[in-house]
Computed example of a mutant assay.
Amino acid sequence: MTQPDYELDVRPIIAKGGEPFGAIMEAVATLAPGQGLRLLAPFKPVPLFHVLGQRGFEPTAREIGNGDWEVTFRPATGEQNSGAEVSAPVQSVDPSTWPEPAVELDNRGLEPPEPMVRTLEGVEALTSGQTLAALLPREPLFLFEELEARGHLWRGSFEPEGHYRILIRRS
């Protein structure tokens, strides 16, 4: 007998300024073999397609009105969900060899997914080897995955004021 999809509504988390990635990965870890995840979000979570795709899930997305989206992640045929945890890869690059940022962005006042979109657009406008610095409202877990997929290097940390500063070097 097939299990019903696990439903997770991340809209309240995002509305409060939170980062839903942890809640999403916790939900994925609790899924039974063959069970899917039905996610409700205030935007189309495209970076999550890649993250969960690497764990054997295929997305189906549809806009449900007012900018909200319903995305169902189902195990790909022949693959089972491992429930493995996600962590940002550690970048082993000597930052002292990086040039000063060619571009600096302040993305703190933007609503998701705009900080990530704006940062990626800035990186894509750079030439190989140039760097971009960005201030973000929270740790950019989805951005890490996207930067890795594109082959870019980065380093980042939380600032004392509570925002996240990332320096990205275009490959």
Results as ranks from 00 to 15, higher is better:
L135G: 00
L126Q: 10
L105K: 13
E124A: 12
P137D: 12
A149Y: 00
L110T: 04
P113W: 06
L110D: 03
S128L: 07
T97M: 12
A125S: 09
L120N: 11
R118K: 11
P112L: 10
Q80V: 11
R138H: 14
T97N: 07
A134C: 08
A102E: 15
P75N: 02
P101Q: 05
G67L: 07
D68T: 01
D94M: 12
E70C: 04
A84Y: 01
S82D: 11
G65M: 10
R74K: 11
T77M: 07
P112Y: 13
A133E: 13
E70I: 04
V93R: 01
D106L: 14
A76L: 05
P112N: 09
L126G: 13
F142S: 01
V117E: 15
L136N: 04
L105Y: 11
E100M: 10
P113D: 04
S96Q: 08
P137N: 10
S92G: 03
L147D: 15
L147G: 12
L110V: 07
V90N: 09
D68Y: 09
E70N: 01
G65E: 06
L143P: 01
D106V: 15
T119I: 08
L147P: 13
E85I: 00
L132T: 05
E104V: 02
S82E: 12
N66L: 14
E148I: 07
G129C: 14
P99Y: 15
A133R: 15
E79P: 03
P137R: 15
D94R: 14
L110I: 05
E139T: 08
W98D: 03
E70A: 02
W69C: 03
S92L: 14
W98I: 12
T77L: 14
S92D: 08
G122L: 03
P140K: 05
E146T: 14
E70T: 02
A88D: 13
G129N: 15
V117I: 11
S82K: 10
G78L: 01
P75C: 02
R138Q: 09
